[in-house]
Amino acid sequence: MTVSPSDAPRPDIDRLVELVATVESTQRAEDADGFLALFHDDAVWVTGGGVRLVGKEAIAAFTRSVLPGAMVGVTVDYVVDHVRFLTPDVALTGVDQEYRPQDGSPSSRGLPSYVWVRETDGRWLLAVGQNTAVPT
């Protein structure tokens, strides 16, 4: 994993990696509420299918319509490849994502980018997400 700047605070890096792991675990568990708890109210999310969702309400409606049942026969892994602090309170995580069907069919990959903002209470929330599929 690369980090920029190289002297970024380790506790912040660790927390962002934990949050990406929560994205992974909530997706695997099809836990829409847990997934949505990660988002800022004014977040913007672009789905792997290229649909832009603006605001947590739109993200919630979409998530609740697609997440239940989405992981049947599939598992997914997320690995943080890059963390870039744009400011001390705004960070980007670049993620390598792999979906592996349990039936042995070929895996598919994604390269999501997530922009996180630190709230005044210290919590990091997902403000922007772009879920980009990697062509086979």
Rank of each mutant, 00 (worst) to 15 (best):
L38F: 06
Q130S: 14
P9Y: 00
T93Y: 05
R118G: 05
D42N: 09
S6W: 07
S107N: 12
G49P: 09
R64T: 04
T132Y: 05
Q102W: 05
V83M: 04
T26R: 09
G34C: 04
S25Q: 14
Q102Y: 06
T26Q: 07
P68E: 08
D81R: 15
P106W: 06
D14G: 03
D14F: 01
D12S: 12
E119N: 09
D96R: 15
V115M: 03
A60Y: 04
E30A: 14
H82E: 13
V3M: 03
Y114V: 12
A60L: 06
R84T: 08
R15A: 13
G50R: 05
M1R: 06
M1S: 13
E57T: 11
D77I: 07
V79Q: 12
M1W: 02
A43H: 04
G110F: 09
V44W: 00
V115A: 07
S107K: 15
R118L: 02
E98A: 14
L111T: 14
F35K: 04
A21Q: 14
P135F: 00
G48Q: 09
H40A: 15
L92I: 10
L92E: 09
A91I: 00
S105H: 09
A32Y: 10
M71N: 01
Q130D: 14
L86N: 00
T132M: 12
V46C: 06
R84K: 03
E98N: 06
S105K: 13
T136I: 02
V46K: 09
D33A: 15
R123G: 06
A61S: 10
Y78P: 02
L53S: 02
D12T: 03
T75H: 03
A37V: 08
G49K: 10
F35N: 11
L86T: 00
M1A: 13
R100L: 13
E98L: 11
T93I: 05
V23K: 04
R109N: 10
R28G: 02
R15L: 14
T2M: 10
A8E: 03
S65P: 03
D89K: 08
D89E: 07
A133W: 10
V90H: 00
V20N: 12
V51R: 11
F85K: 03
D33P: 13
R52S: 03
L38G: 09
A21F: 03
P88I: 01
V66T: 14
L125N: 09
T120A: 15
V79K: 12
T87C: 00
L125M: 14
Q27W: 12
T22Q: 15
G73H: 02
V54L: 04
L36I: 14
T75Q: 06
E98Q: 15
Q102K: 11
V90D: 00
Q27R: 11
A32H: 09
L92S: 00
P11W: 07
V17C: 08
S6N: 10
M1D: 02
T22Y: 04
T136A: 15
V23W: 14
W45N: 08
D81E: 14
L86R: 00
T47Y: 08
R100E: 07
T47K: 07
V23L: 15
V72I: 02
Q102F: 09
A70W: 04
M1I: 03
A8V: 05
A37I: 12
D103N: 14
R10D: 08
D31K: 11
D12E: 13
Y99L: 14
T120V: 12
